[in-house]
Simulated scan of single mutants.
Amino acid sequence: MKRNFTGVKRLVIKVGTSSLVLPNGKINLNKIDQLAFVISDLMNQGKEVILVSSGAMGFGLNVLGKDKRPAEIAQQQAVSSIGQVAMMSLYSQIFSHYQTTVSQLLITRDVIVYPESLENFTNAFESLIKMGIVPIVNENDAVSIEEMDHQTKFGDNDRLSAIVTNITNADLLVMLSDIDGLFNKNPNIYEDAVLRDRVTEITDDILASAGGAGSKFGTGGMLSKVQSAQIVFENKGQMVLMNGENPRDILRLLAGERLGTWFKQE
């Protein structure tokens, strides 16, 4: 089936920590600048763009001059709180170069669960988009927890981006990763691994071929990306998992080039 994204009006772009933070822990300014350029260009074309961005922990570690996340939850929350400020400050500064205004939306899982808060959350999205502002969404890592009686954590921003896609009725979720897409087996181990061009349903075979941990700064792996596609499918939506090495490839993708793995049901 030919890819045709000409009808895409509203899209969610998810960027992971590995795209924003270099292996040495420094901030990838070039990548962030490209991302801001692409989103601003799409906005100028009349599209509506929502950015779901990881990176609070990576930015926090950079600010504090540390190379690994602390073991204690309270310390992790503190580092994320510091990093969120630094990340949004940089986003605001770089986006402003392209005459684009950004906003911050920090959410926890309970915001989605309760109808009244969900309505407020949705209204905030719609108001920002109507104003021509790019909402930058992240989980509120400083307060999110996973205790049995008070679960407020989504798990990771892959799932969060899928939930945001459904809530805002976005036409497409573009998930940027450090790999070209979903392969039939791990390409880091098997030389004959083949990139899947399209996935129409999440089968046991698809789930089995996904997996592995994320980078040392992030939390997501391939399995969470496939599970995110499952969430998008619940709303009859579509998702593309592609390499985020060059964010300008998003423009090529929307022009119809076959990049990454396209998740779309028959």
Rank of each mutant, 00 (worst) to 15 (best):
D41S: 14
V21F: 00
V79N: 03
Q75M: 06
V49H: 01
L251A: 08
G65P: 12
R10W: 01
N62T: 02
V8G: 02
F5I: 07
R159H: 14
I206F: 08
D141W: 05
T219M: 11
F5P: 01
D197G: 13
Q77G: 10
D197T: 13
F37P: 00
D141Y: 07
L22N: 14
D33S: 13
P23A: 04
T219S: 12
E139H: 02
A124H: 00
G244H: 03
N123F: 11
I145H: 05
I107R: 08
H150W: 09
T200D: 15
I179P: 00
S19F: 00
L182Y: 00
E201Q: 12
A36R: 09
E266S: 14
K9N: 13
E266W: 08
A208C: 04
F5L: 15
E245M: 13
A36N: 07
G7T: 04
L160C: 13
K14P: 09
K216L: 03
Y98R: 11
S81P: 05
V38Q: 02
E147D: 15
S127H: 07
I94M: 13
D149A: 12
G244Y: 06
E119S: 14
T122F: 11
I82A: 09
V194N: 10
I82W: 03
L182V: 09
L29P: 00
R258G: 09
A124N: 13
L51M: 08
M131P: 00
G25V: 04
K264L: 12
V143Y: 05
R69P: 02
I250H: 02
S53R: 06
V143W: 07
S96M: 10
N120V: 06
Q238M: 13
V111Y: 07
E201P: 00
L128C: 05
L64N: 07
I82H: 05
D171V: 05
K264F: 11
R3C: 12
D204E: 15
G7R: 04
E191M: 09
V226L: 08
S215I: 01
M242T: 06
V8K: 06
K264W: 06
K130L: 11
L128N: 09
R196F: 10
D171K: 01
E234C: 05
